[in-house]
């Protein structure tokens, strides 16, 4: 069983990597959005350093919102979703496999490139490391909650900007604790509480999101 699930995760990653644009475009989007801010706010080092957490986190949030809508789309279009529902594995586990592979292919690149953007916004080494850790903790929540929304809109033909409206309010706690940890880092305050809260958010969403996502997918097959 574990072997089959690993195979499924592996195949998902292979599929995404073969369609390079599907994971490179969110990455480019992230980079460009973050680079727009210095141009809009002016190049002052102190200002940029002060707003850097907000810029990077909102940029990452938007990039993930952009890509998460595709997580079930091709499956629905090709009729593969029907097969997932008939699988010998619980749908919840299949969803989890898909989410893990989505995180690896869509979020990990963002996290890898984020220190580079941190340099552009004049973050120091300590802030950079906190940035990476907070993104590592926060992005799984984005993916888990986003999957619920994505599954809810999967059967709808033209949903346009509906998905961001559905899921962005749910992202607020992660945004608060993610940027909070970076603000604490720049003020040399202890970080444990922010990280603990984000860890708790990961666990809560891990408990609920795959279940609700698979329930939403079954509803989507209804249409």
């Amino acid at each position: 069983m574990l072997k089959s699930l690993l195979t499924i995760t592996h195949q998902e990653i292979v599929m995404t990597l073969r369609q390079a644009y599907s994971w490179i475009t969110p990455l480019l989007f992230f980079v460009i959005v973050v680079c727009l801010f210095p141009l809009a706010l002016g190049p002052d080092e102190n200002t940029l350093n002060k707003v850097a957490p907000g810029i990077i986190w909102v940029g990452a949030l938007l990039a993930i919102v952009m890509s998460i809508g595709n997580i079930f789309r091709s499956d629905a279009e090709e009729g593969h979703l029907d097969l997932l529902l008939l699988s010998a594995h619980p749908l919840t586990l299949l969803v989890l496999c898909k989410l893990i592979s989505h995180w690896i292919t869509h979020c990990l690149p963002l996290i890898v490139i984020s220190p580079l953007l941190g340099i552009l916004l004049h973050l120091n080494i300590h802030e950079e490391s906190v940035l990476v850790i907070s993104l590592l903790l926060g992005t799984p929540v984005f993916v888990l909650l986003g999957a619920i929304g994505s599954a809810l809109v999967v059967g709808i033909r033209s949903h346009g900007l509906l998905l961001p409206i559905l899921i962005m309010p749910l992202y607020i706690p992660v945004l608060i604790f993610g940027t909070g940890s970076m603000i604490a880092a720049s003020a040399n305050l202890p970080l444990a509480s922010d990280f603990a809260m984000m860890g708790a958010l990961v666990l809560i969403s891990l408990a609920f999101a795959p279940l609700l996502t698979s329930a939403a997918l079954r509803i989507g097959a209804n249409q």
């Binding site: 619920i148 809810l152 059967g155 509906l162 609700l212 329930a215 209804n222 249409q223």
Partner: peptide, 21 residues
């Protein structure tokens, strides 16, 4: 969300999930 789902039953259940989330 409810305004874009055409089918009654799906609209009810999708809305229910959103309310719970």
């Amino acid at each position: 969300l409810q305004s874009v789902i055409p089918d009654q039953q799906s609209r009810d259940r999708a809305g229910a999930i959103m309310a719970i989330v």
